[in-house]
Design a protein around this nucleic acid. Structure first.
Lengths: 192, 192
DNA sequence: TAAAAAAGAATGAACATTCATTTTTATTTC
DNA sequence: GAAATAAAAATGAATGTTCATTCTTTTTTA
């Protein structure tokens, strides 16, 4: 009698292939057969690991989102000043976007199009709770503008994704200098 | 012998249906048959007006993009100060996004995913030439930060799209007050 | 050796596009 | 101004393909 032994490697390869193919062609233009081929697996095998195509993408999304938040808050220290705390988080976000741009592009596509289930997406910004808490504190201390979190996010965090896309499309190269400029710009936009 | 008399109304209805359906389901999840039905037309008729599905979307994109830039620069006056000029343009962009959110959502989806031909997209930011010229002047006058246009765009213009999406997903409502806050934030982020 | 895992081929649905006809339109002829 | 007509415009029904998913068989594993 055999134990349940589905290979985690195969699952990972499938998720990886999905991300890469969806990044380059979009969800509906990516056939399961191609995902299978890229993961060196038969199409039928995908269904041992995932219910169906939608489930595969949802799981890819949640997995990448988790990697993202884990990375972003790893170095965060609640006792730092608001400005320092913001810098810690912002720079980690930038680092993730630059070093894992396959992931960040994928997240971005999921956030901007209707490919992900509402339930799977609803988690959304809530993953960023520590950042929201930091802003709350900043507003109380009078260091951060007393405006909606959505606006703070739109101006200080979302631009990073935009710059990644511009870079992916080869219009722009995101250098160290740019990152520093972008950080200062982000801070200028939300500081009181 | 009859004159060429393809109905502009029909063409418009097809473009409108395409925008609405692509907004809600994405390009590949929108069948031609549905577009036809929504435009009250037979599927075969689409091919009298457009070469194929890709051509239909490309044309929709270019048409909306043109509407956008026409609207945005309509009130612009080259002789205004940099700050005033920026405010004129920014507020028109915001107005367009709010009043024509079907259009702005569509443009955003085209800019963030691989559904549009590279050639059709390449026009991209270049449509915004007057804004780029204004920034150039602002940098010379020492009023605008001397940083890449991509960064200026990412921080002062792109956030509007993000806020639109948040609104479309029902997470947020973009009120007059928010628009004013957002404008000041945009200016803070790019002013020297 | 028995159960799980994997595979390739088969199935059936959905879809973009084309085809063969019908309908509309505008002009011409009386 | 009505009837005739020829070309464009529009249509609904094919066509052929692509694809997600399932089925049956083979291979691997414990």
């Amino acid at each position: 009698m055999a134990k349940l032994q589905k290979s985690i490697d195969k699952r990972n390869a499938l998720i990886k292939a999905t991300i890469e193919l969806v990044n380059n062609s979009g969800f509906h233009a990516t056939p399961m057969s191609k995902i299978a081929k890229m993961a060196n697996v038969s199409p039928a095998t995908i269904y041992l690991y995932f219910e169906n195509k939608q489930d595969l993408v949802n799981q890819a999304y949640l997995e990448v989102k988790t990697k993202y938040t884990d990375f972003v808050f790893k170095t965060y220290n609640e006792r730092a000043s608001v400005k320092t705390g913001f810098e810690l988080i912002w720079k980690r976000i930038a680092e993730f976007n630059i070093n894992e741009c396959e992931y960040s592009f994928f997240l971005n596509q999921c956030n901007n199009t209707p490919i992900i289930d509402e339930p799977s997406r609803k988690e959304g910004i809530r993953h960023l709770q520590p950042l929201l808490d930091l802003w709350e504190r900043g507003k109380k201390e009078g260091v951060i503008k007393p405006i909606s979190d959505y606006i703070l996010y739109a101006y200080s965090i979302n631009p990073i994704s935009y710059l990644m896309i511009a870079q992916k499309q080869g219009e722009f190269e995101l250098t160290k200098v740019h990152v520093e400029e972008a950080f200062l710009t982000a801070w200028d936009s939300i500081k009181r």
